[in-house]
């Protein structure tokens, strides 16, 4: 079995169909993920996200279509694919009768990692997931967030190329969600390719390089965030507080090119711009040129929720 060339996309899904009896869960899904990307998989419940991730994790055979991970076909070479992936389901899947270290040693053995390397490896992944202090703690006694981080430590044991994370922040409290997000950013900096499905849209927007929006088993949008916003003609909202507000200055701002709307609120102006035509920093320069003294300049994060609502209709497969 030869390893494919590294310039190939890490994940290549072409015309994927998944059927459960009479239910057609995934209908002709196609996408590619390059190495080092963080791909956010978004869709309403029943859209086919988990089915697609399960196909990539070799847990489900595709009914039709071709799915390749690192050049290996998931249906024909599942054993080779399993060495390349780390799968974390939307539930914990941990053994309550083991300690955190035993749990990781258990999976190190399952991944056939040499016995001599395991102790250091377990220590390293526990450190990476900030669980060093829980080395000998019973899994049963860990909090929900810690269990999820332990699950992430597990998938890192065999240093996989691709991480498949199905709803990693599901059911976590705000602190645990933030910790999980920071951890994913750290993994991104380590060069891991990650597919992450989630319902928490604004969080995905903060660290995903690419997004796939799926509904009723079909891809409705796929690409970088900027591409999706451009396709949807979405506008960036910027909150501005002026130290010298005046009706004349407001009119001049309204007249600026690429400003599509200005709403006057008691303490601020809410300005909407077309981002592909005007970046927020260009607007800032234009405001200075108009003589505006800026007390606050706050661009909103890209509005994933609007994009999601605009693209989906609430259909299920």
């Amino acid at each position: 079995m030869t390893s494919p060339a590294s310039d190939e996309p890490l994940v290549e899904v072409s015309n994927l169909h998944v059927r459960y009896g009479t239910t057609h869960a995934v209908r002709g899904l196609s996408f590619r993920i390059e190495r080092g990307d963080i791909y956010g998989f978004i869709g309403p419940n029943g859209a086919g996200k988990t089915s697609t991730i399960k196909v990539l994790a070799t847990l489900l055979r595709p009914s039709f279509g071709q799915v390749r991970v690192s050049g290996f076909d998931v249906a024909r070479q599942p054993a080779a694919v399993r060495r390349k992936i780390g799968y974390m389901p939307d539930f914990f899947g941990v053994y309550d009768d083991l300690t955190a270290a035993e749990y990781l040693h258990f999976f190190a053995a399952a991944y056939h990692i040499p016995v001599g390397d395991r102790a250091n490896l377990v220590r390293d992944v526990l450190a990476l997931t900030d669980l060093t202090g829980k080395h000998d703690a019973a899994v049963d006694g860990l909090s929900r967030g810690m269990k999820q981080r332990l699950g992430l430590a597990r998938v890192l044991l065999h240093d996989p190329d691709l991480l498949l994370l199905d709803e990693p922040a599901s059911g976590l409290d705000p602190r645990a969600r933030i910790e999980m997000r920071e951890l994913l950013k750290e993994l991104q900096s380590l060069g891991k390719t990650i597919i992450v499905s989630s319902h928490i849209l604004h969080e995905l927007a903060q660290f995903c390089s690419h997004i796939g929006i799926i509904e009723a088993g079909q891809m409705v949008a796929n690409g970088s965030l900027r591409d999706i916003y451009r396709t949807l003609d979405l506008r960036r909202t910027i909150h501005i507080q002026l130290a010298n507000p005046s009706p004349g200055l407001h009119a001049a701002i309204r007249a600026l090119p690429h400003v599509s709307g200005v709403e006057e609120q008691p303490d601020r102006l809410v300005v909407q711009i077309r981002e592909e035509q005007c970046a927020p920093e260009d607007l800032l320069d234009a405001l200075h040129a108009l003589g505006a003294r800026i007390r606050m300049f706050q661009p909103d994060a890209m509005d994933m929720e609007t994009a999601f609502m605009k693209l989906t209709e609430g259909k299920v497969a």
Binding site: L59, R82, R83, G86, P89, G93, F107, A110
Partner: peptide, 14 residues
């Protein structure tokens, strides 16, 4: 039932 089977099945263990 403990939802650990799926995790096991994604390891090289058959």
């Amino acid at each position: 039932v403990g939802q650990s089977l799926e995790v096991l099945l994604t390891t090289p263990l058959s």
